[in-house]
Design a protein around this nucleic acid. Structure first.
Length: 657
DNA sequence: AGAGTGGGCCTTTTT
DNA sequence: GGCCCACTCT
C-alpha cells in the first residue's frame, strides 16, 4: 500500500454512519460483501468506503468503481468529492460497459481494433444480423433461421453467461436446436464483420475486456498492478462474464467490495445470475460479510409488506428489514373496474395528493411493461398533469437521432457498412438494393463519382455526397458542428417532410448538437453516445432552460431501481401482466417477477398504492376478466390487517380540479 | 426490377 | 410505434 499522502479532509464516520454501515466502511482491504437491503443506505456505505480508501492513501486512478448506470456512478463520485475533495471525481468509475470502453481504447491494438472504434447500439446490431442472414448462400435457410431478435438474444446470452451457444439454444429455444450449426456460423460471421467494421456492440465491450484480461498477460499484469481497489454496486445483477471480469480486476489487490441485495436481482433475462452474490463468499476466501438491514426509506407498513412478500421466495439470504421511520398510512390494494378506471383513479389520486401539498416529483407510477402506461399518459394529458416517462425509447434510439448519427459515423469510419446503409437509404430513390450496389462500389473504388446508376437514384446519390462533403468541411469546428452540418444540408428538410412532428425532431437534433459540443473529439462523442443510457431529454444541457417544472414520474420497475418517491402507485397488478405471462414460462421466472414486485414496493417512502383493473380488452376486442396479482394475495395473506382494500366502481364520480 | 406506401398485427424487462 | 406484406408507381 502506498504511503498516506497529505490529506486535507476528515470524515466523521461515527456521526455519519450507523454501526452496520461503519463496519462495512471501516473493514480492512480485503473481500467485503455488503448485503444491503432496500433503503438501507448502501450508496452511502459505498461512497464512504470509497472515501476511506482515498483517506488511506490510494490515489483515485487506482480505484475502479463499477455501477449499474452512469447516473449512479456520477452521483457516487460527486458525493465522494463532497467528502474528500475534488479528487474523488478522478476515480475511474461508470458502468461495466463504459469502464470497459476506457480500457479497450487504451489497448485496442492488442485486439486488432484501432483506438477509434465506435460502439453500436441494438438496432445497428439487428441490421447487421439481418444483412448477414440475407447474404447467406442457402436461400431457404433464411426462412428457417430465427429472427434477428432471437438470434441476437441467443448470441448475447451465450456471451454473457459464458455458455456455448448450442447450450443456450437447447435451454432457451429448443425448437431451433437442429439449426445449431447454421446459427453458430451466423454468430461467427457476426463477430468477424464487426471487427472488419471497427465497431463493437455492448457485448463485445465486455467480452473483449475479458479477453484483454485473460489472454493478454502483459495487459493483465499492467492493469492488476495499477488497480488497488475494486468496488461494485448492484452486484446481484452481474452475469457470469462480469463476475469473471471483476475477479480479474481484483486479482492483483484482493481488495474488493461488492454491494448488493439478492432480493433485488431483476436482470436474469439478460444473463444476470443471483448465484454470483450468493456464492461470493465461496469465490473469495476470507470474505467479510456485512448485512445492512436498517431501512431508512419507508414506513414500517411498507417495510412489513416487503418482508412479507420476501417470505414467498424460495432462494436467497434470509434477512428481514427493520423499519426506522414512524408509522404511516397502510398500503392500499385498489381494485378498479377497468383500465380506464385505473387511469382515472391514479390521476385523481395524484390531483388529491397535489392539493394536499405533495409535490408532483415526489410521486411515481410504476409498471411492468412500457405499454402499460398508455391509458395513464392519455389521462394525465387530458387533466394537464405534468409527467415524465422514464421508460421506452432512449434518446439516441429514436430514428431521427440515429439517422443523423449514421451520417457522421460513416464520415469518420468508412468501414462502417451499417451506418453507410442506414444513411444512404434515407436519400431519395435509394432503397436496399441500390444501397448494396453503392456499398460495393464504394468499398472497392473509394468514391461514388463515376457510379453507374439509374436516373432515379441520381438525385439521392448527389444529395448523400453533398452531406458527406458538408460533414468533411465541419470537421474543423467543434463536434456540434457535425450534427448541424447534417441537419442543414439535408435532415431538416427530410424531417419536416417525413414526420408529423418534424419540428420537434429538429429541436431534438439541435439539442444533440449542443450536447455534442461538450465533447473534445468526435470519436469520443460517437463512442460514448451509445452508452449513455439514462439521459432523457432534460438531462442534455438545454440552451434556453426555463425553470424546472415538477412532474410525476412514469417508469418501468426496472428503470425505477435505486430511486425513491414519497408516493408510489404500482399499476396493472394482475395475473399475466405483473407477473408477466411470458416471464412465468422461464425457469425461475416467478422468482424474478416477485423480486421485481419487491423492488417496486420498496421504492415508496410514505405511501404505496397497488392498483389493478378487473377487466381489460384483449386485442382491442374481447373483454377478458383479470385476476388480481398473486403478489397482492401473498402479502395480504401474511398481513391482512395492514393492507386496505378498496374497490373503485365504474359509476363512481370523480371530482375535477 | 426496385422504390415507396398503406394496412394489419403485435408489443417484457435493458447496458 | 415497429415490422411484415401486398400493392402501386416509375
Amino acid at each position: 500500500m502506498p504511503a498516506a499522502k497529505d490529506i486535507s479532509f476528515s470524515i466523521d464516520y461515527d456521526k455519519d454512519l450507523n454501526a452496520e454501515q461503519r463496519q462495512a466502511v471501516m473493514a480492512p482491504m480485503q473481500p467485503v460483501l455488503v448485503l444491503a437491503g432496500a433503503g438501507s443506505g448502501k450508496t452511502r456505505a459505498l461512497v464512504y468506503r470509497l472515501a476511506r480508501m482515498i483517506e488511506l492513501g490510494l490515489s483515485p486512478s487506482q480505484i475502479r468503481l463499477l455501477t449499474f448506470t452512469n447516473r449512479a456512478a456520477k452521483s457516487m463520485l460527486e458525493r465522494a468529492s463532497a467528502l474528500c475533495g475534488a479528487i474523488g471525481k478522478d476515480v475511474i468509475g461508470g458502468t461495466f460497459h463504459s469502464v470497459a470502453l476506457k480500457d479497450l481504447q487504451r489497448f485496442a491494438e492488442k485486439l486488432d481494433y484501432t483506438p477509434q472504434f465506435t460502439v453500436i447500439g441494438r438496432d445497428d446490431v439487428k441490421d447487421l444480423i439481418n444483412l448477414i442472414k440475407a447474404q447467406r448462400k442457402d436461400p431457404d435457410e433464411l426462412d428457417r433461421l430465427p429472427s434477428a431478435d432471437i438470434l441476437l438474444e441467443m448470441i448475447s446470452l451465450s456471451i454473457n453467461t459464458l455458455t456455448p451457444i448450442d447450450k443456450v439454444i437447447m435451454s432457451r429455444h429448443p425448437r431451433f436446436y437442429e439449426l445449431c450449426e447454421e446459427i453458430g456460423a451466423v454468430a461467427r460471421e457476426f463477430f468477424e464483420r464487426k471487427r472488419a467494421m471497427n465497431v463493437m456492440d455492448f457485448d463485445d465491450l465486455l467480452v473483449n475486456w475479458y479477453t484483454l484480461l485473460k489472454e493478454h498477460e502483459d495487459v493483465a499484469v499492467q492493469l492488476q498492478s495499477e488497480i488497488k481497489a475494486v468496488l461494485v454496486d448492484e452486484y446481484q445483477d452481474t452475469n457470469n462474464l462480469q463476475c469473471e471480469i471483476v475477479k480479474c480486476l481484483a486479482q492483483g489487490s484482493n481488495n474488493i467490495t461488492v454491494v448488493g441485495d439478492d432480493a433485488q436481482s431483476i436482470y436474469g433475462f439478460r444473463g444476470a445470475s443471483v448465484q454470483n452474490i450468493l456464492n461470493f463468499e465461496k469465490m473469495y476466501p476470507n470474505t467479510m460479510t456485512v448485512p445492512l438491514l436498517t431501512n431508512y426509506r419507508s414506513t414500517p407498513q411498507i417495510v412489513e409488506l416487503a418482508n412479507a412478500s420476501r417470505k414467498w421466495a424460495n432462494e436467497g439470504f434470509k434477512k428481514e428489514l427493520l423499519a426506522l421511520k414512524i408509522d404511516g398510512a397502510a398500503p392500499a390494494a385498489v381494485a378498479c373496474r377497468d383500465v380506464n378506471m385505473q387511469a382515472s383513479f391514479v390521476a385523481q389520486r395524484i390531483v388529491e395528493l397535489s392539493n394536499e401539498g405533495v409535490l408532483l416529483d415526489e410521486i411515481a407510477v410504476l409498471y411492468r411493461a412500457h405499454h402499460h402506461a398508455m391509458e395513464l399518459q392519455l389521462e394525465l394529458m387530458r387533466r394537464q398533469i405534468p409527467f415524465v416517462v422514464r421508460s421506452g425509447l432512449r434518446f439516441f434510439e429514436q430514428a431521427h437521432i440515429k439517422d443523423v448519427i449514421a451520417h457522421i459515423k460513416y464520415a469518420y469510419n468508412p468501414k462502417d457498412e451499417i451506418s453507410f446503409r442506414r444513411a444512404a437509404r434515407l436519400h431519395e430513390g435509394i432503397g436496399p438494393l441500390i444501397a448494396e450496389k453503392l456499398w460495393q462500389v464504394m468499398s472497392q473504388r473509394g468514391d461514388l463519382a463515376s457510379v453507374n446508376i439509374g436516373s432515379r437514384a441520381r438525385i439521392g446519390v448527389t444529395q448523400f455526397l453533398a452531406v458527406m462533403d458538408s460533414i468533411a468541411r465541419a470537421k474543423s469546428g467543434h463536434v456540434g458542428q457535425l450534427v448541424l452540418a447534417v441537419m442543414r444540408e439535408f435532415y431538416e428538410r427530410y424531417a419536416m417532410h417525413n414526420f408529423t412532428n418534424g419540428q420537434q425532431r429538429c429541436d431534438d437534433i439541435k439539442q444533440l448538437a449542443t450536447y455534442a459540443a461538450s465533447f473534445t473529439s468526435a470519436e469520443k462523442f460517437l463512442s460514448e453516445l451509445m452508452l449513455l443510457s439514462d439521459f432523457g431529454v432534460e438531462e442534455i444541457p438545454a440552451s434556453g432552460e426555463s425553470e424546472k417544472i415538477r412532474k410525476v414520474t412514469l417508469s418501468s420497475v426496472h428503470q425505477a431501481k435505486g430511486l425513491e418517491w414519497s408516493q408510489v402507485f404500482v399499476v396493472w397488478l394482475c395475473e399475466g401482466r405483473f407477473p408477466s405471462e411470458l416471464a412465468l414460462r422461464e425457469s425461475n421466472g416467478l422468482e424474478e417477477e416477485r423480486r421485481l414486485f419487491y423492488v417496486a414496493a420498496t421504492r415508496a417512502k410514505d405511501a404505496l398504492h397497488l392498483v389493478h383493473p378487473n377487466v381489460a380488452r384483449h386485442n382491442d376486442w374481447r373483454q377478458i376478466m383479470l385476476r388480481r396479482s398473486r403478489f397482492i394475495d401473498e402479502i395480504t395473506s401474511h398481513a391482512e390487517n395492514w393492507v386496505v382494500e378498496e374497490e373503485i366502481k365504474n359509476d363512481q364520480q370523480f371530482a375535477h380540479i
